[in-house]
């Protein structure tokens, strides 16, 4: 009696896109899937994709939740730069005098190099959260403030210079391998696990979607909607902080002016490609993960195929538009109509 077809899960489209890219490489790119072991580390294009996408992955995970509350956080690129700069500064023992003199520096303990930037990032996230939830600013505007000022602050910390360093312990964060796997990717997996735990083992996941879907109804149901929004932005700051540590450690330096520039846009893109609507109310964490992988494997494919890297952006633009149009209501209406017509014609 009930003829309603089960709708395709929303992850199908992004997965298909990823599959297509991988299939393309399977056929046309020699050795794309080969993984070798050198010095106990895994090497290969796939491993490279996993390593490179880690910082974006970590930020996109948090962005998924932010967008699900019908918000947006465009300050994470700047928070990333601040986190990295603080870390670099701590490696140098907290001062930049070494830049002029060859003075001895006493690096801070690794614990502080890791923890202080993360705390700073969370405080910045809390500022965003406060602006959105309590002051009631539009999320875009609220986070625009830190996006603009934050980069300046990062440059202030580093004295406007690129802070290079060498620190065996800290370098492991971005460059190390654990069990042959790139450490950044392990961090990304841990962040995903943490996010999944927080949203599954507490009612947070439910609340985030409830608040994004209908704030009034959530309030009527007793949810502390402000707290939910506040916490989500703190988590976003935290994740940007981790990404900052990875990038800084990987390049053994903090380039406050350019680190993480436009990365917020990549994160948002990954979320949207992954099937989370910008209007909020429902998130798709798996989709986001696939979205990040799509963007990175696209980039890596272009690089390994010897296509000039300048085409990356063009391809990205086309892919984004295609995904957007496929997911649009007009397209689904169109498909519905034509299939209805076809089935009608078939029945007749």
């Amino acid at each position: 009696m009930d003829k309603t077809k089960k709708p395709l899960p929303s992850i199908v489209w992004p997965l298909a896109a990823l599959g297509l890219i991988l299939l393309f490489n399977l056929i046309f790119t020699d050795g794309f899937f080969s993984i070798t072991i050198k010095n106990g580390h895994l090497f290969g294009s796939l491993i490279d994709i996993l390593k490179r996408c880690s910082p974006t992955m970590i930020m996109a995970v948090a962005m998924t939740y932010v967008i699900a509350t019908s918000g947006i956080d465009i300050s994470i690129g700047s928070i990333l730069a601040i986190s990295g700069s603080v870390a670099a500064l701590l490696v140098w023992g907290g001062n930049t005098s070494y830049l002029s003199a060859g003075a001895d520096v006493q690096p801070a303990a690794l614990f502080f190099i890791i923890v202080v930037p993360l705390l700073v990032s969370m405080v910045l996230g809390a500022f965003n959260g406060l602006m959105v939830s309590v002051v009631g600013l539009q999320p875009f505007i609220a986070t625009l403030i830190l996006m603009v000022a934050g980069r300046g602050m990062a440059q202030l910390l580093t004295g406007g210079k690129v802070l290079n360093f060498s620190h065996k312990g800290f370098e492991f964060v971005g460059r190390g391998y654990l069990l042959g796997i790139p450490f950044p990717f392990i961090i990304a997996v841990l962040v995903i696990a943490l996010a999944a735990l927080l949203t599954k083992l507490t009612p947070m996941g439910l609340y985030i979607q409830a608040v994004g879907g209908n704030k009034t109804a959530s309030h009527y149901s007793g949810i502390n909607t402000r707290m939910v929004i506040f916490l989500v932005y703190i988590f976003s700051g935290f994740c940007a902080g981790i990404a900052g540590l990875i990038l800084t450690s990987d390049i053994t330096g903090a380039d406050a002016g350019f680190m993480g520039l436009y990365m917020e846009l990549d994160a948002i893109l990954a979320v949207v490609i992954g099937g989370t609507a910008m209007s909020g109310g429902k998130y798709n964490l798996k989709g986001t993960i696939v979205g990040v992988l799509i963007i990175q494997s696209l980039t890596t494919t272009i690089l390994t195929r010897g296509v000039p890297p300048e085409y990356t952006l063009l391809v990205k633009a086309v892919v984004v538009l295609a995904v957007l149009i496929i997911q649009s209501k007009r397209t689904s209406d169109f498909i519905e109509k034509t299939t209805a017509k076809v089935s009608k014609a078939g029945a007749a």
């Binding site: 439910l206 979607q209 879907g213 209908n214 009034t216 109804a217 009527y220 949810i223 109310g281």
Partner: peptide
């Protein structure tokens, strides 16, 4: 406007207040 959370499932809508 005040009751349903449209995208959430029947189950999630039912347990929402109890969870709170």
């Amino acid at each position: 406007e005040e009751s349903i959370i449209p995208d959430l499932s029947v189950k999630e809508n039912i347990i929402l207040a109890l969870q709170v």
